[in-house]
């Protein structure tokens, strides 16, 4: 792999409403500078894909957005959400995560029933009304395209579901919390193509009411579902633009080499 200049960047600004903005975000694992100067604007009600080779810092960046990296890394810079810098010590991180929720690479349903997987966090956050809980269970499972498959088995263990169903349950679990932004960290990389297609279809539906940021290894996936795409390389964001521009007419050599399969 040849060396690419980190000074040559092509980062567009978002003309429409923004869901989240980062300014000069730095992430350090101890002394290791894992993410440098990440300044990106994420559009509201759109899907943004973060692509790049393994170790390029895209997952690190994503996990910083709802402060999931707090325990293991130092994150500097600003994360602006609703005119507030949520990367501040004064911010209640638990409150942040109610607005900015995350789905992980490997499905991680709780060892509870399907229904409880969804209602658990709701109840702990003070929603006691049975009708409201029922409504949220049905609604969130429908938005994750899982309702028809599980509506008769809501009291069965979530661990009995297939991997793809479990991942859609994890998406439903987040959706039920009615967050603003959904972060997905390679949600389909452990799934078969049919499950992957269902997840992608689900995300396209969810875009109507959520802002979605997804890390993916799969460039076809990014080009299929994302409105905007950011290319990460060795801890730097080198290019950020509309997905069609990234894939048909990249401005940066590194992006072009990556999407044409020359490295990564």
């Amino acid at each position: 792999m040849q060396d690419y200049s980190f000074d040559e960047k092509h980062i567009v600004h978002i003309p429409t409403e923004k869901a989240l903005t980062t300014e000069d975000l730095q992430v350090y694992y101890g002394k290791n500078h894992a993410m440098t100067d990440a300044s990106l604007e994420f559009p509201r009600y759109r899907i943004t894909a973060l692509i790049g080779a393994s170790g390029s810092g895209k997952s690190t960046y994503l996990r910083s957005l709802n402060r999931m990296n707090d325990a293991i890394a130092t994150v500097e810079g600003k994360i602006i959400y609703r005119d507030t810098d949520i990367n501040s010590k004064k911010i209640n991180v638990y409150e942040v995560r109610k607005h900015i929720s995350m789905v992980f690479q490997r499905p991680n349903p709780f060892a509870k029933s399907i229904r409880e997987n969804i209602t658990f966090a709701l109840k702990r956050n003070g929603i006691k009304d049975k009708a409201e809980l029922e409504y949220r269970v049905e609604n969130s499972l429908k938005s994750a395209a899982l309702w028809d498959e599980v509506k008769d088995d809501l009291d069965k263990s979530a661990l009995a579901l297939s991997g793809g169903q479990q991942q859609r349950l994890c998406i439903a679990r987040c959706v039920a919390m009615k967050p603003d932004i959904l972060l997905l960290d390679e949600p389909a990389s452990a799934l078969d193509p049919i499950s992957t297609a269902k997840i992608e279809e689900t995300l396209k539906q969810l875009r109507k009411s959520y802002s979605i940021i997804i890390v993916t290894h799969n460039m076809q996936q990014a080009s299929r579902i994302a409105d905007y795409t950011a290319f990460f390389h060795m801890g730097h964001v080198l290019e950020y633009d509309k997905t069609e521009n990234i894939f048909t007419n990249p401005e940066i050599k590194a992006t072009e080499d990556y999407i044409s399969g020359n490295f990564g």
């Binding site: 995560r97 991680n108 709780f110 702990r124």
Partner: peptide, 25 residues
């Protein structure tokens, strides 16, 4: 750890995650 992350990412506090998710498991 995935179970802990699941709880935290839903906005549950660490203590709620431990008592409600980790302990039963």
């Amino acid at each position: 750890d995935l179970q802990r992350e699941a709880g935290l990412s839903l906005g549950l506090s660490r203590w709620k995650t431990i008592t409600g998710i980790v302990f039963p498991a």
